[in-house]
């Protein structure tokens, strides 16, 4: 995790022409767009491969109780800090004699939760504010976007540490922190495309033909804002996982007996002189998950033809 995980999208004044707006077309043609996306994805074997990797990671977390050779919380004084391939403890054991593999499988649940829930929540909150600001324009836009600017004055890690450090640890606090950190960039992306759509002819046409604001927002603005927002949100999943594992590493995540990759790294750090390789294992899980999400979001961006 670094200060730069959440790359700020271009600021309002540097806004390029950016996303070419799709015309609002009959429902069948809209499906056609997603059909095109799928056509492009189908032949992008690298992205498909990493999508498969993500599915494997998700499956291993969901089916952790079936796959884990041991109870992740069962300590054993006699089997502390064992090496790789020690009897049935394929990835060794930790400082309390708990099976590392089982803890990594269960820990995937926390990490995926921390990667996905805050991004979904921030997409809704940020998207809502962004669309409203972009479509309304004027004073409402100024109020919303200038407030968001204040959050951009904090590097993402610092903002996360500030909120989390004040709120204290725990899973709910961590989810709140990550959602707050991820909302402003998503809001900015949504606002940028919504304000471009706003001045399009087809929106004027809809308004002239008597469509209500709600109906314009739903049928014309939202449809065109969805793909840039989704692509941007997908890049944030890996950032969110890294931020969450970093907070856990600092002791600001889930409370100790719960398996969590960041927390495991933090407690295993004491043992690097005894079992260096075993201690590095939870980080391998974070790295793999993060790489997979990053590459899939790259592929998605290309398939959905959204400019970075």
């Amino acid at each position: 995790m670094s200060g730069a995980l959440v790359e700020a999208p271009p600021a309002a004044d540097a806004r390029a022409q950016g996303v070419p707006a799709r015309e609002a077309e009959p429902a069948t043609r809209v499906r056609g767009y997603w059909g095109n996306v799928w056509q492009r994805l189908r032949y992008d074997y690298a992205t498909l491969f990493f999508l498969f990797v993500i599915l494997l990671i998700v499956a291993s977390a969901v089916f952790a109780p079936l796959l884990s050779p041991f109870d992740p919380n069962k300590a054993s004084m006699a089997h502390r800090l064992k090496p790789l391939f020690y009897h049935d403890n394929i990835l060794g054991t930790d400082e309390q004699g708990r099976d590392i593999l089982s803890r990594i499988l269960y820990g995937g649940r926390t990490s995926l939760l921390m990667g996905i829930v805050p991004v979904v929540a921030a997409t809704f909150v940020g998207g809502l504010f962004g669309v409203v600001a972009g479509y309304a324009g004027g004073r409402l836009n100024t109020i919303i976007m200038r407030s968001m600017d204040v959050f951009f004055a904090f590097p993402s890690v610092l903002l996360a540490v500030a909120i989390s450090g004040s709120l204290g640890g725990g899973m709910v606090n961590q989810l709140i922190t990550l959602t707050v950190v991820l909302t402003p960039p998503l809001c900015r992306v949504a606002e940028t495309s919504a304000s471009q759509i706003r001045s399009m002819d087809f929106v004027d046409a809809a308004r002239a033909s008597g469509a209500s604001t709600v109906s314009i927002l739903l049928h014309h603005v939202l449809v065109n804002v969805v793909s840039p927002v989704l692509v941007y949100a997908s890049t944030l999943v890996s950032a969110s996982i890294l931020l969450a594992s970093g907070l856990s590493f600092l002791g600001l995540g889930v409370s100790p007996p719960t398996p969590d990759w960041g927390l495991m790294l933090s407690t295993l750090r004491e043992a690097i002189y005894v079992r260096p390789i075993v201690c590095a294992m939870p980080g391998v899980a974070i790295l793999l998950t993060s790489i997979a999400f990053n590459l899939v979001s790259d592929g998605l961006r290309q398939a959905m033809d959204v400019k970075a």
Binding site: L5, S245, R269, P276, A280, L295
Partner: peptide, 23 residues
């Protein structure tokens, strides 16, 4: 580049310690 943006910095730190300090 992908590795750079995907690697958890603190884990990289631990790996460096394992490689250059411990081993």
């Amino acid at each position: 580049a992908v590795l750079g943006i995907s690697v958890p910095q603190f884990w990289l730190g631990v790996i460096l310690v394992i490689a250059f300090a411990v081993e």
